[in-house]
Write a protein that binds this DNA or RNA. Structure first.
Lengths: 199, 199
DNA sequence: AGGTCATTGCACACTGCTGTGCAAGGGTGT
DNA sequence: ACACCCTTGCACAGCAGTGTGCAATGACCT
């Protein structure tokens, strides 16, 4: 994350650069201010306000892009005729490399802008809950919790592991996939098998 | 949570009253200020500072009491000769009625005072990680994740369910116990059985 | 060379929260 | 009645973050 002199960058890249940095900085410290983000982006605070009138705007755009990418991955992997647990394993495998980048979502949910963020995350929540419900109906997932709840738990488990795991260094895709499948009520053997065969 | 005139209360109860209210208020909004806490306690902000010089002091005392109660429950239930999964189920059963009250702990971990809080929570982390490790060694828990990590996940799962579940109203001890046991790698049948027989 | 425009570097006002000081009020126990 | 002290009410200083205004700089394009 080296910071080149601002002048050397293409002018219009600044906005996306700020977004990238903001995702990283806010992922590390959700209460980071515009100043912190600006500094991390190698830019003056005033410049950030030039692209994002308020901090809320920045957070919203950040969330939107994250939601977009995530739903895209799920839509790409999902298919009505596939087993829900296999789809879930694939989704985790695809998202894992990006999960650490998106760990900011965990913090955003319960934050100052919680209500607005919750609305933005709704599409992701819905598609995941739908997938889990399908799995429960077909019997591959357990019914110990409502689909809407257990999907959240399994989801946040993956992101928590991605967030902390990079620091620990000892966690990998397999562990995260297996754990989230266990949460969903998939038997250990099946979970291990599913986690082994994707990538 | 009705607020009687301050004069009617025993003088020295104010402190513990503030602590109770703070646990509740901070559980709902971790970024709540001294003013919010004071108002919820039916007291003036100045009075809170009379008992807790800084906000950090309040949070620390709050955490300490929570840690004390939790470790007490675990110590009471745990016994070296008992199966780790049965102990875990008992701990969850005992803590569930209080878990919603203690949900503030989830937020405190990753907060402004994160480092200090982490130290205070260390005893709880250790005893739980130890229990899980024992379970892994005896084969009742899975080895998909390191004990220190999976104990955290299972732990926060229970507290998350307790925090959200009260709002939903549809979640009970059984569901939380089963889910946390699943996270730990306990087979569904065994988890269901363990969750059924305690109370 | 000249115009455009993003960026910069101040300045400033505003807000919300923290922590403190101090005098007055009003129970409580003797 | 009296002293004690917790609580109250208000005032104040300080800090951190937000959002704005404006002139100056300098890169890029024509």
């Amino acid at each position: 994350m080296q910071v080149e002199p601002a002048r050397a960058r293409s002018v219009s890249d600044t906005r996306s650069r700020i977004l990238d940095v903001a995702r990283e900085v806010l992922g590390r410290d959700p209460s980071a201010g515009m100043g912190d983000i600006a500094a991390a982006a190698g830019v003056v605070r005033r410049t950030v306000y030039g692209h994002f009138p308020t901090r809320g705007d920045l957070v919203r755009d950040l969330t939107r892009s994250a939601v977009g990418e995530i739903t895209a991955v799920v839509a790409e992997v999902d298919a009505p005729d596939r087993d829900a647990d296999a789809v879930w394993a694939d989704v985790v495998a695809r998202l894992w490399p990006l999960a650490h980048r998106y760990r900011v979502l965990l913090a955003l949910r319960r934050g100052e802008h919680g209500d607005e963020i919750h609305v933005l995350l709704r599409p992701v929540d819905d598609v995941l809950a739908g997938l889990v419900r399908r799995g429960q109906d077909s019997g591959v997932f357990g019914r110990h919790l409502p689909a809407a709840v257990v999907s959240q738990i399994a989801w946040s488990t993956v992101f928590t592991l991605a967030g902390d795991g990079v620091a620990d260094g000892a966690l990998d895709v397999r562990a995260a996939t297996i754990t989230s499948l266990l949460v969903l009520g998939v038997p250990g053997g099946r979970a291990t098998a599913l986690a082994a065969q994707d990538g």
